[in-house]
């Protein structure tokens, strides 16, 4: 149970639902789609403010179009996460 309220796709309405639909329509590697079928937790964590969600994931979406390969991207992300001892 997260420490703040989150709203998943199934309960979303209005701007949040539109934002989720836009984000879920983006091409995503299969590894980024959780088996529960809803939005990944890191996206859901931003769900109390759809405009914040758009700002953050707009930036991360741009980051996927940079010059490094996907494998290099994942290596950097994994090392960063590991250095911060982040379970997620």
């Amino acid at each position: 149970m997260a420490w703040i309220q989150t709203i998943d796709v199934a309960e979303a309405q209005g701007e949040l639902l539109d934002t989720y639909r836009t984000m879920m329509a983006r091409p995503l590697p299969a590894a980024y789609r959780p088996p529960h079928g809803g939005a990944p937790g890191i996206i859901r964590a931003h769900s109390l403010d759809p405009s914040l969600m758009k700002a953050v994931f707009g930036a991360s979406g741009a980051l996927h179009k940079g010059p490094l390969s996907s494998a290099e991207y994942e290596l950097i992300a994994a090392v960063t996460s590991r250095m911060g001892q982040c379970l997620y």
Binding site: A2, G41, A45, S60, G84
Partner: peptide, 23 residues
Amino acid sequence: AIVGMFSHFTRAADATAIAPDYT
């Protein structure tokens, strides 16, 4: 920039306690 982005993502995850949900 990738390190920067994940410096945010990891903190958002740690401060909200969202459960790891990727396989």
